[in-house]
Amino acid sequence: MNILVCIKQVPDTTEIKIDPVTNTLVRDGVPSIINPFDGYALEAAARIKDQDPDTRIVVLSMGPKQAEAALREALAIAADKAYLVTDRMFGGSDTLATSYILYNAISKVEELEGLKFDAIFCGKQAIDGDTAQVGPELAELLNYPQVTYALEATNADGTLHILKEGEDGNYLIGVKTPCLITFTKPSFDPRFPTIKRKMAARKAVIENLTSAELPNIDPARAGLKGSPTKVKKTFVPPRKEAGVVIKEETGEESAQKLFTLLSEAHVI
């Protein structure tokens, strides 16, 4: 089976701090990582390959040149080949424009690879924007069925069996290939790269695709100009006023005080 995994390089949002003076996001020194959900998608593809070594895993990212680092990491973990879509013209794309560019890039990659992908794997969401939109938007352009919130995927002869996280339990979903799946966090941890793969990944050639290689892209649908949604402003959320701190001698006294305060405030 041939699987394409869409990978985004993101700042590690757990490391992001707010500058208390300027009240803005401090991004300097924040490490760039593979979006964790894309790591889960890659792991899902790797598990299919564990079962069937003929599986080919290609990773695709759109972003600045430095996103090659994320692709190299993906190569070290499990991918066979990596492509980076990079062009000034694509900067500032919202999710709809991103999905449109990725859609065009996918058909180019299929042409270059001389194959059709049976499945496109994405992360559920990128942790910088948290939108969870690119996957389904891309599925629509491809006219593929989609399954979101996937935990695990197994290949059952032209059909993927997807364990999907639901609101009150999980579902096992059957979906015919070609299809697009978005992955959330499974119960297991993704694998680490081996030393051998790491060395190979360092030397691997990452093919870059620019607007020149993707002539079908209509500039009116790409980049900031081609994005229907525009950010009007950003702000750091107002911090809540400091709450009441309760610290009595014993836990019991603290509990009683809390109870009194909550009753007075008609919360309970």
């Binding site: 992001i16 942790i127 948290d130 950010v231 009007k232 402003k233 750091v236 959320p237």
Partner: peptide
């Protein structure tokens, strides 16, 4: 966005 660190309109 950014895990709740930033709000965008």
């Amino acid at each position: 966005a950014f895990g709740g660190n930033l709000m965008a309109t």
